[in-house]
Design a protein around this nucleic acid. Structure first.
Length: 664
DNA sequence: GCTATCTCACCTTG
DNA sequence: CCAAGGTGAGATAG
C-alpha cells in the first residue's frame, strides 16, 4: 500500500488505448475524448490479489475491555529476525528480562514511575485522572496496524490542539512551545501507546515506508524509544556478559553520513560532540556505540529510520521507517574536530518494500537529475497552480484522462447563489491567533482554525477563513485553503481504478491538499444530467451519508469539560459541485473505504458575499507516492432507490480491510 | 540485592 | 543560535 512505486508492472485489463490523443495542455482543449462509457476510471473488475501486506485482520479495539488475544498471524517478531540470540531466551524464572514489564496489577512499576515523573505538572494529572486509553495492557505490549494508526492519530490531534493553545497565548518568550513533547508525555503517561516491549526486528503494525514528524511518534508506536538519542538498544541482564544489542537507529543527517546507494547507510557513533561548555572529544565505546559493535558481531537486524528535511515545512523534519538493516562493518576515523569517531556501515536486508529509495528518486526528479518514467505532461494545470502537477502513466499506454478544462477553484453560476451578506474582519496586519477582536476568529468559536504552520487543528461544521474582502495581509495565517496547494501532486494511472492522485511530498495529518473545484450545480439538475450513472462521475456532494470518524482531539485530554462532541456535521446548505467539464486535481481522487483524506467546508468573503468551498485535508500522515483517497459517501436511501441508475453502484477496489464492497 | 533519587548525554524542536 | 525539554542509563545512597 504505502510507498508503492514501481513494483510489478502487470498490464491491467486492457482497454482500447488506440484512441489516445496527442498531448497538449489540457486546460485549453475542448473535450473530445471518448464517451464516458469507455475508459471510465471506475471499471468494475474483481479485486485482484490479497490485501496489502501488514494489514492484520480487522481487530476493533474500541471496546475498552482488554481482549487478550491479539491476533498474531505472520508477524512473529522473533521468528522473522531469524537470529537466535541467547539473550532472548527466557530466564530461569521464565521472565523475558528486559522491557517486558510485569502485569502484576494496574499499578505496575512503570506506570507508577510515570505518574511520579509528572507529579509537578498538576495540569496533566488532574485532567487525566479518569481517562481510559482504550488500549489493553497486552495491546500496549504488542501492537497491530490499527493500534499504531490510532495512537498516531490521537497523538497528532492532541499535539495540534496544544499548539493551538500555545499560539493563542500572549507570546512572551518564556513560554515553551513544545506541544510535541507535551502531547507525547500525556500519551505515554496515560497508556495511549503500543509495542512497549522492546524487540529486535519487525514492530507489529509499523510498515516500511511509514512516516513520522516527531521523535515522540517513534516512541509511541514502539519503533524507537529514546526521544533524542539516535541509537536504541537493550541490555539483557539475563545474559552473563550483559551485552547491549542495538535495536534501531535514527539517521538525522546531523553527521554527514551520505551514501549514493539508498540501501546503504554509514552511521556515526554517538557522543564526542562539542557543545556550549564542552570541547569535542573522542567517542567512547559505550552505550549505543557498544550496542552497535555487539550487534555487528551478533548480526542481528537493526531498524533504520531516516530523518530528512520536510519539503513543505523546510524547518522541520520527516522520519521515514526504512525497514531492517544489518551492520556490515565498523571502523574508527578522525572527525572534523580531529577526534575519533565510530562509523558503522549498515546494509539493507534485501527483499523489503521500497521506502527511502522512493524518496531518493523523487529528489532526483525534482532536481531534474533523472526523468520521471512514464511522464506524459510535466504540468497538467498549464501553470494554473503555483506548483506543477505531473501526469504519469507507468501502467499502460493510455495517454491521459478525458479532456476537461483545468480550473483551480469553485464556480458559482449566476442563477445559483449560496450566499449570505456578511463582512470580513477589520484587522490591518496578519490576524493573530489570540486576538479576540478579530471577527473571523470569532466566527470560528474564537479558535484559530490552523496552527502557525498552516495545519488544520480540528474538523468543524464550518471553518471561516479571512477572504478577499478582509483588509488583513494576504499572508494572514487564516487563508490556508485559498492560497493554492503546497504539495507536489501527480495524477497517475492506477492499476485497476483509472486515474488517481498522489503526492511526491510527504504530507502531515491536517495538511491542506486542495479544494474541490468545479461548477456548483443544483442537486436536481445533477440527477437529471447524470441520467446514465456514468456521467455522475466527477461530481461532489455534501449531502450524502458519510461514515463517521473521529479526528479531533479528545476533550478530556486537555482538561475541557463535557464529552467529545460528535464529528458528524450537517451542511446547512447542501452543495453539489460538478467537475465534469472543468475542475482541478481533486476530480481525480478516488474513493476508498479507509481514506487518507477528508473534506471540510470552508467559507470566506468574496465581494461581500460568503462563498462556500470544499477543502481536502490529510487525515493522517501520508508517505510520498501513496494514493490520496476520500470517502465518496452514500446517497440517501430515497435517492438510491428512486434513482438507482443515476447513482449507479460501483464495485469498490480500495482493498482496505474495512471495504464496504461498493461505492457510488 | 533492591529501590529511590540524582546526573548526564542524547543525530530534538521552533 | 539557543534554551527548554523527555528519556533512560548509570551512579550513588540508603
Amino acid at each position: 500500500m504505502e510507498g508503492g512505486l514501481g513494483g510489478n508492472t502487470v498490464p491491467p485489463n486492457s482497454m482500447d488505448k488506440s484512441k489516445v490523443l496527442d498531448v497538449k495542455p489540457l486546460r485549453t482543449l475542448v473535450p473530445l475524448f471518448p464517451e464516458a462509457s469507455e475508459g471510465t476510471p471506475f471499471v468494475c473488475v474483481p479485486p485482484n490479489g490479497p490485501f496489502p501486506s501488514g494489514f492484520s485482520p480487522f481487530f476493533p479495539f474500541s471496546g475498552s475491555q482488554g481482549s487478550q488475544s491479539t491476533p498474531d498471524l505472520n508477524q512473529n517478531d522473533f521468528n522473522s529476525t531469524a537470529v537466535p540470540l541467547r539473550s532472548f531466551r527466557a530466564e530461569p524464572n521464565g521472565q523475558n528480562t528486559y522491557g517486558s514489564h510485569k502485569h502484576k496489577s494496574a499499578g505496575s512499576s512503570s506506570v507508577k514511575k510515570k505518574a511520579k515523573r509528572i507529579k509537578d505538572s498538576e495540569f496533566v494529572l488532574t485532567a487525566l485522572s479518569n481517562f481510559n486509553p482504550g488500549i489493553s495492557l497486552s495491546e500496549r505490549d504488542d501492537g497491530n496496524r490499527e493500534l499504531v494508526e490510532n495512537v498516531l492519530l490521537r497523538f497528532d490531534a492532541l499535539r495540534r490542539k496544544l499548539s493551538q493553545m500555545e499560539d493563542a497565548r500572549e507570546s512572551h518568550s518564556s513560554i515553551t512551545k513544545r506541544a510535541d513533547l507535551k502531547a507525547g508525555n500525556m500519551m505515554l503517561s496515560k497508556g495511549v501507546r503500543t509495542n512497549m516491549k522492546k524487540r529486535i526486528g519487525v514492530v507489529r503494525g509499523v510498515e516500511i515506508g511509514d512516516i513520522f514528524f516527531f521523535r515522540m511518534e517513534l516512541c509511541l508506536v514502539g519503533l524507537h524509544f529514546p526521544s533524542m538519542a539516535g541509537i536504541d538498544y537493550m541490555v539483557n541482564k539475563g545474559d552473563l556478559e550483559g551485552e547491549p544489542v542495538a535495536l534501531s537507529i535514527v539517521s538525522s543527517g546531523g553527521y554527514d553520513d551520505d551514501a549514493e546507494d539508498p540501501d546503504i547507510l554509514v552511521y556515526s557513533g554517538q557522543g564526542g560532540n562539542a557543545s556550549r561548555d564542552k570541547e569535542a572529544s573522542d567517542q567512547q565505546l559505550v552505550r549505543g556505540n557498544l550496542a552497535l559493535e555487539r550487534s555487528l558481531h551478533r548480526a542481528n537486524e537493526v531498524r533504520v529510520i531516516r530523518g530528512l528535511k520536510d519539503a513543505i515545512h523546510q524547518t522541520s523534519k520527516v522520519y521515514v521507517y526504512d525497514g531492517l538493516y544489518k551492520i556490515q562493518e565498523s571502523w574508527m576515523e578522525k572527525g572534523k574536530s580531529g577526534c575519533n569517531m565510530f562509523k558503522y556501515k549498515l546494509v539493507r536486508v534485501p527483499g523489503q518494500a521500497v521506502a527511502f529509495a522512493t524518496w531518493k528518486s523523487i529528489q532526483k526528479w525534482k532536481e531534474g537529475l533523472s526523468s520521471r518514467v512514464g511522464l506524459i505532461l510535466p504540468d497538467l494545470t498549464s501553470g494554473a497552480e503555483s506548483i506543477p502537477v505531473s501526469l504519469v502513466n507507468e501502467v499502460d499506454d493510455e495517454k491521459g484522462p478525458a479532456y476537461f478544462t483545468y480550473f483551480p477553484t469553485v464556480k458559482y453560476s449566476k442563477s445559483f447563489k449560496l450566499v449570505q451578506r456578511t463582512f470580513g474582519c477589520t484587522c490591518h496586519d496578519a490576524c493573530q491567533a489570540g486576538n479576540s477582536n478579530c471577527s473571523c476568529i470569532q466566527k470560528n468559536e474564537c479558535d484559530f482554525p490552523y496552527t502557525a504552520n498552516g495545519i488544520l487543528v480540528c474538523r468543524k461544521p464550518m471553518i471561516y477563513e479571512c477572504g478577499p474582502s478582509c483588509p488583513c495581509f494576504r499572508n494572514c495565517k487564516n487563508r490556508v485553503s485559498q492560497t493554492g496547494f503546497k504539495v507536489h501532486l501527480e495524477v497517475f494511472k492506477t492499476r485497476d481504478r483509472g486515474w488517481g492522485l498522489r503526492s511526491w511530498d510527504p504530507i502531515r495529518a491536517g495538511t491542506f491538499i486542495c479544494e474541490y473545484a468545479g461548477e456548483v450545480i443544483d442537486e436536481i439538475k445533477a440527477r437529471q444530467d447524470g441520467g446514465d450513472g456514468e456521467n455522475n462521475e466527477y461530481v461532489f456532494h455534501t449531502n450524502r451519508l458519510y461514515e463517521s470518524f473521529k479526528w479531533n482531539y479528545e476533550t478530556e485530554l486537555v482538561g475541557e469539560e463535557g464529552s467529545d462532541s460528535t464529528e458528524d456535521f450537517d451542511i446547512p446548505s447542501p452543495l453539489t459541485i460538478s467537475a465534469k467539464n472543468s475542475g482541478n486535481v481533486a476530480r481525480f481522487m478516488n474513493h476508498s473505504c479507509s481514506p487518507n483524506v477528508f473534506w471540510q467546508p470552508i467559507m470566506y468573503e468574496h465581494n461581500n458575499e460568503a462563498v462556500l468551498h470544499i477543502a481536502f485535508f490529510a487525515k493522517r500522515h501520508i508517505p510520498p507516492m501513496t494514493e490520496l483517497t476520500y470517502d465518496y459517501g452514500i446517497p440517501h436511501s430515497n435517492e438510491t432507490e428512486s434513482n438507482n441508475a443515476a447513482y449507479g453502484r460501483k464495485k469498490c477496489l480500495c482493498g482496505s480491510p474495512k471495504c464496504r464492497g461498493y461505492f457510488y
